[in-house]
């Protein structure tokens, strides 16, 4: 049973097709419990499709998918219900009738306790994304799925949000799958980086670096080059396009 306890997610031979075109094509994947994994890939490579399947939002699949019953998703857009105050958004869908205090505890955790009674329209982009994180965390998930949650944030807010996610993960110890197209973000946060290509996991590497990490760490440079190459970007090309 011990091995089962360490496996949070098991995917075998997973295939998902849109109009006969397979986007996920016989994919195998195992995520260890408590591990922070980053899933990289070009847009349209199927990484968001995989995340939606793991979230249970897409059932038009063939293959085996085993995921924890308690899982939560934070999307690229916060997707708060605009007609519910922040704390009601956090509690939405929770079984039983949890009180406002439950929501406020989760909001405090993301530093948003003071906005509990606000309408979502009054939140800034970063605040809304943090509320969305609180909504995911209040479910006490065994698996937290993050679909480019920082993509729509400005650079400064993104750095703060990334640090917050790292802290929350360390405190909670849940399994995290972060879908992103940002190599630096993956290296900053993850234990393991996956590159998805042609519907399968094409590259799989551990990120063995001490935490807390800083984006400019030279130890990251080699891994960064390798991951970029797997994504089809060579450093030379990158420098060229940067100076162009």
């Amino acid at each position: 049973m011990a091995t089962d306890l360490h496996r949070a997610v098991t995917v075998q031979g997973l295939t998902r097709s849109f109009d006969g075109r397979p986007v996920v094509d016989g994919l195998d994947l195992t995520l260890r419990a408590g591990q922070f994994t980053a899933l990289l890939g070009h847009s349209g490579c199927g990484k968001s499709t995989l995340l939606r399947i793991l979230a249970g939002l897409d059932r038009e699949i063939s293959g085996t998918v085993l995921v924890p019953r308690r899982r939560a998703v934070a999307f690229q857009a916060p997707r708060l219900m605009p007609w519910k105050k922040v704390w009601r958004n956090v509690l939405l869908g929770l079984p039983g009738k949890p009180g406002r205090a439950v929501a406020e505890k989760a909001l405090d955790e993301v530093g948003l306790g003071h906005r509990s009674g606000a309408w979502p329209k009054t939140l800034s982009g970063g605040e809304a994304q943090r509320a969305s994180l609180a909504r995911a965390l209040v479910r006490d998930p065994d698996l937290l799925l993050l679909d480019e949650p920082f993509g729509a944030l400005d650079a400064l807010t993104r750095l703060k949000a990334q640090r917050l996610v790292a802290e929350l993960w360390q405190r909670r110890g849940c399994t995290v799958l972060l879908v992103t197209h940002d190599v630096d973000e993956a290296l900053l946060l993850a234990d393991r980086a996956l590159v998805m290509r042609d519907g399968v996991i094409a590259y799989d590497t551990a990120v063995d670096l001490d935490r807390p990490r800083s984006p400019g760490d030279p130890a990251l440079a080699g891994l960064r080059t390798r991951l970029l190459a797997e994504l089809g970007v060579t450093e030379g090309e990158f420098a060229e396009s940067a100076t162009a």
Binding site: A55, R79, M81
Partner: peptide
């Protein structure tokens, strides 16, 4: 539809 999906993911 994205809000509906979010609601679904929250277990509604």
């Amino acid at each position: 539809a994205r809000l509906v999906e979010a609601g679904e993911s929250l277990g509604l």
